[in-house]
Structures are given as structure tokens and as C-alpha cells.
């Protein structure tokens, strides 16, 4: 859900960036973080809680709360709300603590 009309700000003319979330193709735009691009695509659950595996979504936007930790290009616990989106990134919803060199 991108803002179309705004009385003060303009978000026009930003280049499209393709990326993958859970192996499906999505598009973000220049200036997005991974998490902002996912929210824009209406993806709500980004990670899950450690014990009860409850869904967790975007919360603080400053890299502080761990509620958006995801697996990005094989690396777990990436703070996706402060990590700039790059072309062809492979992003996965994280389960639990995550493992180094994880395939998913």
C-alpha cells in the first residue's frame, strides 16, 4: 500500500527493485528497506516468536526490537527494517533463532 497523493511529500519516480520473499517474486522501490518493501506488499508476518512461534511483524523501524529479524541471502537475524533493499535479494521468514548458513 504505497501512498499515492500526499500534501507535503512526493514519492514519485523511484526505480523498481525486484526481490524474492519465500521464493516468490516481489517488487520494492529505491529507498526501501527490506521490511518496508514487504509491508508495502501487505506482508505482515516477518518472523516468529522463539517459543510459541507466534507471528511477529514490523514494529519499531529503528533496528531495535528484533520483530523483523529475517533470513537474507542465507544469513539469519538480519534487521530488515534498517537494511536497504537490494536487487534480487532472497528473503525468508525466520523461524526461531535462525541458523548460520541456513538454506531457509
Amino acid at each position: 500500500m504505497r501512498i499515492k497523493n500526499h500534501p507535503i511529500l512526493s514519492f514519485d519516480g523511484r526505480e523498481t527493485i525486484p526481490f524474492y520473499f519465500n521464493d516468490k517474486l516481489y517488487y520494492g522501490v529505491e529507498g526501501d528497506t527490506i521490511a518496508s518493501a514487504l509491508v508495502a506488499n501487505n506482508v505482515k508476518a516477518l518472523t516468529s516468536s522463539l517459543h510459541l512461534e507466534r507471528p511477529r511483524g514490523f514494529y519499531c523501524a529503528i533496528g531495535n526490537c528484533a520483530s523483523c529479524n529475517m533470513v537474507v541471502d542465507g544469513e539469519p537475524n538480519v534487521r530488515t527494517c534498517i537494511t536497504p533493499l537490494k536487487k534480487d535479494m532472497r528473503v525468508y521468514r525466520q523461524k526461531g533463532r535462525g541458523r548460520l548458513h541456513a538454506k531457509e
Partner: peptide, 19 residues
């Protein structure tokens, strides 16, 4: 639950990223 946001984070989403 996803959909519960810190208010400042929502301000970031809207005004920095246009979402």
C-alpha cells in the same frame, strides 16, 4: 500481533518510505 506498531515506526513507514 503483526499490525500492532510503535507510532514512530508508522511515521517512518509513511513519511520516509511512502507506505
Amino acid at each position: 500481533l503483526p499490525g500492532v506498531y510503535a507510532a514512530g515506526a508508522v511515521q517512518t513507514l509513511m513519511n520516509e518510505y511512502g507506505i
